[in-house]
């Protein structure tokens, strides 16, 4: 299209990278948490579940504020950045990944936990009587049975990271190619009255959101049919 700024697609690429990285990390980190939440008998496990779910309720500004301080030169993030000569994790892609992992965690952990919950004790007991080690039972019984949960978790985690705005605005610094993700780019275009560019990206986001929600609904339906 004529007259479009050449860098209009850069935020799209960056957003996809951020969401993919975040989803990958969340699947790795979130699965053991979800498993523990589903299987543990500890009385305080719902407390942990509540902490994981906090970002559902907290305004992004609360997370943005804490992250800005924690990632900064006086916080642990600054110390971490010092390992490779940086001063702060704010304004970096890594900082955004950390923020997104926290922010999107409930959207990945919850569906996986529900899927593990739904399996119940029985299949794992059967696996144990067939002499499967707990680890083997986990990989060959629990994970395949919980596959719909992993799928919804991955889709929701990815989509929710794409939709992230407040935190990135607060800790990102609007750096093209590093922290200027889609939602921030749209905000920027609107603030500077570049409505055509804003329109293109916003319409794309709306279409993307529609596809995600439709996919989720169809996934749910299929899962229900398998179970029913």
């Amino acid at each position: 299209m004529a007259g479009l700024p050449p860098d209009i697609w850069q935020p799209v690429r960056l957003t996809v990278e951020l969401a993919a990285m975040t989803t990958l990390i969340l699947l790795i980190v979130g699965t053991p948490i979800a498993w523990w939440l589903a299987r543990s008998k500890a009385w305080w496990k719902e407390g942990v579940a509540a902490v994981v779910a906090l970002p559902l309720v907290l305004p992004p500004t609360v997370l943005g504020f804490y992250l800005l301080v924690l990632l900064g030169p006086d916080g642990p993030g600054g110390a971490l950045a010092g390992l490779w000569g940086g001063r702060t994790l704010a304004f970096t892609f890594e900082g955004l990944v950390i923020g997104s992992v926290v922010y999107s965690m409930p959207f990945v952990v919850q569906p996986i936990r529900n899927a593990f919950d739904a399996i119940g004790d029985r299949p794992l007991e059967v696996a144990a009587t067939l002499r499967a080690s707990p680890l083997k039972a986990f990989w060959t019984v629990a994970v395949p049975l919980a596959r719909p949960g992993f799928l919804s978790g991955a889709v929701l985690g990815f989509a929710h990271t794409v939709g992230e705005f407040g935190i990135v605005l607060m800790i990102g610094g609007n750096i093209p190619g590093t922290t200027k993700v889609l939602s921030v780019a749209i905000y920027d275009y609107v603030e500077t009255s570049q409505w055509r560019e804003a329109n293109i990206l916003a319409a794309g986001m709306a279409a993307f959101a529609f596809v995600v929600i439709l996919t989720m609904m169809m996934l749910e339906k299929r899962t229900a049919r398998i179970k029913g």
Binding site: P73, D74, T88, A90, G173, I175, Y187, E191
Partner: peptide, 18 residues
């Protein structure tokens, strides 16, 4: 460069030492 959405945020980035 790091960019604040307005001058208050630009100031806050320096104030927090980021």
């Amino acid at each position: 460069f790091v960019e604040g959405a307005n001058i208050s945020q630009a100031f806050q980035f320096v104030q927090t030492g980021n």
